[in-house]
Design a binder for these strands. Structure first.
Lengths: 341, 341
DNA sequence: TTGAAAGCGCTAACAT
DNA sequence: ATGTTAGCGCTTTCAA
């Protein structure tokens, strides 16, 4: 009905200047809060802005000022709590300082990640948040051409700014707990492609730990493509029906662990008497499951918060710790127990 | 070490033009894929881009072309699946078409939402996704000044484009199920402030349904500030200790229902013999709980997908259904049963 | 404290 | 098919 109406010319800073009887430079000064504007003019400008319903054009501002007041983030996916929580926290912090979030997904793929980073660079993001510390070989080169602060999350990296934890260590703590319970037959249900460095490291940690104990992880007992709870459940069935049924199953996160438990239960296995299961992250529900989950607690929101703080500090020219450790904590609950005889 | 290095002048389209011996217009044409460029020049331009590591400046492009290739979204929070899932799906779809997501949080607050929309408008988003259909009174006025496609989600709205469902109906279906099981004493554990129209409507639906059945909801039995699983658990304790202990508890989402169940269990109540509990959304874990949850299944990702499709179609000048219904489905499981005698 | 004016890097007529 | 050029709407010297 009103679809044909001509788009009204957007009101510009010049319109404001005209109405308030000052130059565009002065309007700009008021908008940017430069203190050196006489009060009377400032008021006039503000009044004009209101009257005209002026909305600043950030593209123009970005072009002229060379800063966009946006921060980019690339995460594997938002569909799981592991990333939606940090992003939620991250976004809230940067917003407080006037920044807007440009968000992209990598889908756990390094090429995609690089592409998205490129696109964010095109948009002129002032800073960048990434997940993990292994990226496309070209990524750092790109970031060198466009030197903006960049923080990596979930990992620690001696080379570059990061906020996270030592995945190897974390997985080994879990393993030690299981080893101390005399488990000897292990399986792993993980959920990400090889490009996920955190998971690779956790797997590596487990392998090392097992080797150290004179044990090893059978190939059939190493599932690496379980993403949803139901995937994990199916994986668990396969494990139980496999040649080397485990007595302890280490899962990539609490949701996968829940799926594994579920399968165990459907097979009438007692937890933890017949089988022990561990998670990761300590999602909110973990302690409330029928068999409260033994897991590593990770401060997910904290990761987002620290990443944001690092970037903001750097953007403001303040020195910032280039490595923040968010140490996961072993939470022992009822889902793990002594290995069956 | 290299911190002092002068920032190299960013390579511009003009540099590319110079190196490849064509005009800036031609470079622009190549970049934008206009078919009317001779192959040889096109190749030359592409080569020059690569050589120089050219990255387009979107701010400049946006300013000149008046479209930003960004889409804005304002959601209450990403910390719960209800919104992180649709956003994940939404983002994936718009990316496929070359759009980038600008994301903001409203924190369930209409003023904040308006502010964020304003900011997104400043950034020149080409389209907008919102949650719910009740917004700040000024919101539509703003959007009239900046006429861009806008889709509302989770609600249906006869006035404006929306993809969602009838909250009143959804809650009443749940209620009917409970009523049919002879329940007469109800309680509600919800999690959002009054500005959440979906929840208000669901509450309204329950009130109406109860009234129709000659029943009512005691004020003490209507909890409206439970956001986390643990909040719900505490709320449940209060309910059970209150003057009107319910036999059926309707929760705002599956996580809250889980919390409520947990509390019931701690009080040694049998589910569903002593008490029935319902959720909403059918999160992945809902069917796998010790007492599988009766809930309304909502296609969360579908909402995001449809919202994206609507916006994309509209941006491409294609006609699009301005109202898509995503009908929630009643899933009856073991958490509900006949009212105790 | 203020204004004039020169860009920022691109696109989009328009001309050729 | 390609080049010329005039902006897009702001910020930022530089002068006054």
């Amino acid at each position: 009905m009103m679809a044909d109406k001509i788009t009204p010319a957007r009101v510009s800073l010049e319109d404001v200047a005209r109405l308030s009887g000052v130059s565009t430079a002065t309007v700009s000064r008021v908008l940017n809060g430069s203190a050196i504007v006489r009060e009377s003019r400032k008021t006039a400008v503000e009044k004009a802005c209101k009257e005209l319903g002026y909305v600043i054009n950030r593209a123009a501002r970005t072009l002229a000022s060379r800063k966009s007041m946006t921060i980019g983030a690339v995460v594997p996916t938002l569909a799981i709590e592991t990333f939606s929580r940090p992003i939620d926290a991250f976004q809230k912090i940067i917003h407080q300082q006037g920044y807007t979030l440009l968000l992209a997904n990598s889908d756990f793929d390094m090429d995609t990640e690089l592409n998205e980073v490129n696109k964010l660079l095109e948009y002129g993001v002032d800073a960048l948040m990434l997940v993990g510390h292994t990226h496309h070989p070209q990524l750092w080169k790109r970031l060198q051409q466009h030197p903006i602060p960049c923080i990596q999350t979930f990992s620690i990296d001696p080379q570059r700014p990061a906020v996270g934890y030592d995945s190897i260590l974390a997985s080994q703590q879990l393993l030690q707990h299981l080893l101390a319970l005399k488990h000897r037959h292990f399986a792993v249900i993980f959920g990400s492609p090889p490009s996920n460095d955190r998971l690779s490291e956790r797997l590596e940690g487990i392998r090392q730990g097992l080797q150290h104990a004179g044990l090893s992880l059978a190939a059939e007992n190493c599932i690496e493509n379980a993403f949803t709870m139901n995937d994990a459940r199916q994986a668990m069935f396969r494990l139980l029906d496999g040649p080397q049924p485990p007595t302890a199953v280490i899962c990539g996160n609490d949701l996968l662990a829940f799926g594994a438990m579920r399968a165990a239960k459907e097979r009438y296995l007692r937890i933890p008497n017949d089988i022990s299961i561990t998670g990761f992250n300590d999602y909110e529900f973990a302690e409330h499951l029928e068999h409260p989950l033994t897991t590593m607690r990770v401060d997910l929101a904290g990761i987002g918060r620290l990443a944001a703080s690092y970037l903001l500090a750097t953007l403001n020219g303040h020195p910032a710790e280039s490595l923040s450790c968010v140490t996961p904590q072993l939470i022992i609950r009822g889902s793990t127990g002594s290995a069956p005889q």
